[in-house]
């Protein structure tokens, strides 16, 4: 790991100021991706701004049928939360399957979203549920937040404070894991929301994406058979030694079908 300066501000304003001061500064959530990448010297921030001292970034509260979850809330806290389990059980289940036990005890919602790893789980839930990403500057709808591989709508010095997830009528997330890393080779989040069905896919492409053909088919009838025949194109999907684009495309349909079945 290269040298860096460490800051642990107690307020959001101080954190934003510290980030604004140094163009190569990075916010530190749980650090489960960032520290790992710094250890391999793949990432070289000048400063780390640890957000764990900011009380307002933590916590889960029921919010008009949905939930608002603080950006520094750990995955394990989301998985175990009675509020989340009640409002959106699929979200609690998704959080319970992120990374591994130790990652879930440390990793945070905000950190995962800001990093936007193409194989991360949370982006599928945020996009699949049509959630809103709240920052210190504004509210960003999910459809505008994710901008492709490791890219988001966040501007310099902008910090995710919480995410508001509206409760769907039903939802489920089914993940096909990479046999080595256990990240999502393909993960599909399916939700029947107030605005209609949404299907969000992670792992398969350069970033999380929706499948309009499946959503349309589910709007007509919310059943596994509706998506079973909908194929996604392999063009543009990820291809690596674990899965070709063709195999991923095939898995998107299979996982979508299983997610719809699991949503009930």
């Amino acid at each position: 790991m290269y040298q860096f300066n460490y800051h642990k501000p107690a307020s959001l304003a101080d954190a934003a100021a510290a980030l604004a001061k140094n163009p190569d500064a990075k916010a530190l959530g749980g650090g489960q991706s960032l520290i790992a990448s710094m250890k391999l010297r793949l990432s070289q921030p000048s400063d780390l701004v640890d957000l764990s001292g900011i009380a307002e970034l933590r916590g889960i509260k029921a919010d008009g049928g949905g939930v608002t979850i603080g950006a520094m809330t750990r995955h394990a806290e989301v998985a175990a939360s009675a509020e989340v389990k009640k409002a959106i059980p699929a979200l609690a289940a998704l959080a319970a399957g992120i990374g591994d036990r130790m990652v879930r005890n440390m990793g945070t919602l905000g950190g995962s979203l800001a990093n936007n790893d193409p194989a991360a789980d949370y982006p599928a839930a945020v996009l699949g549920l049509g959630a809103t990403v709240n920052t210190n500057k504004r509210k960003i709808p999910a459809d505008q937040f994710f901008k492709g591989m490791y890219e988001t709508a966040l501007e310099a010095g902008e910090i995710i404070t919480s995410v508001t997830f509206p409760a769907p009528k039903k939802a489920a997330y089914v993940k096909f894991r990479n046999p080595a890393s256990r990240y999502a080779l393909v993960g599909v989040f399916v939700a029947d929301t107030a605005g209609g069905p949404r299907v969000a896919v992670t792992g398969a492409g350069p970033g999380v994406f929706r499948v309009p053909e499946m959503e349309k088919a589910l709007a007509a009838k919310f059943s596994p058979e509706s998506v079973a025949g909908v194929k996604v194109k392999a063009d543009g999907l990820n291809s690596d030694l674990h899965a070709s684009a063709e195999y991923r495309a095939h898995l998107v349909t299979v996982m979508a079908k299983r997610a719809v079945a699991a949503a009930g």
Partner: peptide, 28 residues
């Protein structure tokens, strides 16, 4: 060195974490 084997697991405030993937400062 990629925080996957878990041999470094310790308890931080009662919960298991990978000590190889956390800064000492984070445990302050």
């Amino acid at each position: 060195d990629t925080a996957q084997c878990g041999a470094c697991t310790v308890h931080l405030n009662g919960r298991a974490v990978k000590s190889c993937n956390i800064l000492a400062s984070q445990a302050d």
